[in-house]
Nucleic acid binder design. Structure first.
Lengths: 199, 199
DNA sequence: TACAAAATAGCACGAACGTTCGTGCTATTA
DNA sequence: TAATAGCACGAACGTTCGTGCTATTTTGTA
């Protein structure tokens, strides 16, 4: 058989792990709750990872495989369209409730800041990767004169990312989807200004 | 004596509670760690609050007494100056490391979203109060024609709040204060635009 | 200075946590 | 058919958690 039984149950475990972690956090993700959601024993789950930290890292990686498709863009689009496509997919991802407790990376970030260790390092690496893609897309749109502002790409990335972050947090706290409308408004206005269409 | 011993030790306990909670989170704030930081017994600390939830609420209230002075402004300033004063104080508060683990309300927000209860309700009330003051300051600056944009005050408040939030999160994760520079840049540009000085 | 009241310590509890271990199934291989 | 490897199970470990009792100490007052 191509996929062993071990790999498939591990995958199922991690599916539930991501769901639980998005609600309870990476620390609140306990072997007990995970085992019960799988109708497995605690030790059976544990054997797949060897430690809580490895489970947390594997959970982050699984969440990344769900999020990372947002970072891709059709190659036939223009640079600025690819950038807007990225933002739109990112927003859809946050809005989709694909993780019942909201973006795992954002909750893990505020959970693990100030707690050094391999889990935090791994998280920061994934977050950096996403932000890097955002910055690169902005750069490409600037290089092709489709964004006419002279702002540093990092500055624009910070502002766009801030709207995404804030929409996610406010939505998770209030369960009111209007915050995504507000975020879209903010992002649209910024693009218009940066494109130089709104002088 | 005017202030009883009970009140003063309770105050000391809560000082440490805010410090611990800002690093470990409201859930990670345990009676054990709190007792050790106070050189007290677990039960001695516990007796002051009666339950973990009440301790968490009292901790949020104590953090509020530290943060809320940011919301005040000298009455002799103009409306828009009062608004800028508010943002500046808010930034200084985030940057000051007065809480070693960053803004307690922001970490508590992502910790408690999706976990209904009296602690979450209390937190949301405090957060709403801060955002309300921000919106009101914006409204007053609009009413007095010092902000010439027709954007809804809630929209502007969302964007400003997003920059504050994002600066705090990025700083806590990376310990790099440049994010406050980036946030100040963003906020300054937005004020300039909203004042109509940058057409 | 003595005494009632208030504040703190001490102790034990049940539950949950991550982790380790030996064991029993159930396939695959010899 | 016999031997082996892969998985999962249940029990138990030591620790930490919040909480409930009962002493003991400390405090403010008469």
């Amino acid at each position: 058989m191509n996929t062993s039984k071990k790999q498939s149950t591990r995958a199922h475990i991690l599916e539930n792990a991501v769901r639980i972690a998005s609600v309870e956090g990476l620390q609140g993700l306990s072997l007990n709750s995970l085992a019960q959601s799988q109708r497995m024993s605690k030790s059976g789950v544990f054997a797949h990872f060897g430690s809580k930290e490895e489970l947390q890292i594997a959970t982050l990686d699984t969440a990344w495989t769900i999020f990372s498709p947002c970072l891709t863009a059709p190659p036939d689009l223009s640079a600025v369209q690819q950038l807007q496509h990225l933002i739109e997919q990112w927003l859809n991802y946050l809005e989709s409730d694909i993780f019942p407790g909201g973006c795992v990376f954002m909750s893990a970030s505020s959970e693990l800041d100030g707690k050094p260790g391999i889990v935090r390092d791994h998280l920061m690496q994934l977050v950096s990767r996403a932000v890097f893609v955002l910055i690169e897309r902005i750069r490409k749109a600037q290089d092709t004169q489709q964004l006419l502002t002279s702002l540093p790409a990092e500055q624009m990335a910070f502002e766009l990312h801030a709207f995404l972050l804030s929409a996610n947090l406010s939505y998770q706290l209030s369960r009111d989807k209007q915050y995504f409308l507000v975020a879209r408004n903010a992002i649209f206005r910024h693009f218009e200004e940066w494109k130089g269409l709104n002088p």
